[in-house]
């Protein structure tokens, strides 16, 4: 006689008390708005399906990436070099939409306002460091 798998008995339906209860069904008021929303989504799909199939529209993220690459290439070819790599890493930098010359000017003024370091400051720092290192 074939031996019964103990796991099969452990998972048998009789081990859970579901008698006398049932889970609630979907409320009737849910039917109309749900089907209306789904059919709207289906119709919206049909209206833009031809352009999608013809390949006339690319996904927006690829268009965005292509625009960023073109803008970077235009900036680099115009001789503009970023003074701060942090600005270049920020995709939402307002400098990306400016002409290269104007962006350069703004970037320089931006850097100077943030880091007002003068040559005398550097010399003072070097002198202090040398004094601390000497015994």
């Amino acid at each position: 006689m074939k031996r019964q798998d103990p796991r099969r008995k452990r998972d048998s339906p009789e081990r859970f008390p579901t008698t006398g209860v049932r889970p609630p069904g979907a409320p009737e008021r849910l039917r109309a708005p749900t089907l209306a929303a789904a059919k709207r989504a289906l119709h919206a799909a049909e209206t833009d399906a031809p352009s999608r199939e013809a390949g006339s529209t690319l996904p927006m993220r690829w268009l965005w990436l292509a625009a960023m690459i073109a803008l970077t290439a235009a900036n680099l070819s115009s001789g503009w070099a970023p003074a701060s790599p942090v600005v270049m890493r920020q995709g939402s930098s307002p400098f990306a939409y400016l002409p290269a010359e104007e962006a350069c000017q703004r970037l320089r003024s931006f850097d100077q306002s943030l880091v007002p370091i003068r040559a005398s400051d550097i010399r003072r720092h070097q002198t202090r460091s040398a004094q601390e290192e000497s015994p």
């Binding site: 008390p17 008698t19 006398g20 209860v21 049932r22 889970p23 609630p24």
Partner: peptide
């Protein structure tokens, strides 16, 4: 939330109280 509702027709001696469950 009401996760379970009582179902009529079953043997009450072996049924589960829906509210308690």
């Amino acid at each position: 939330a009401d996760l379970l509702l009582p179902q009529a027709g079953d043997d009450p001696s072996i049924s589960v109280d829906a509210a308690l469950a």
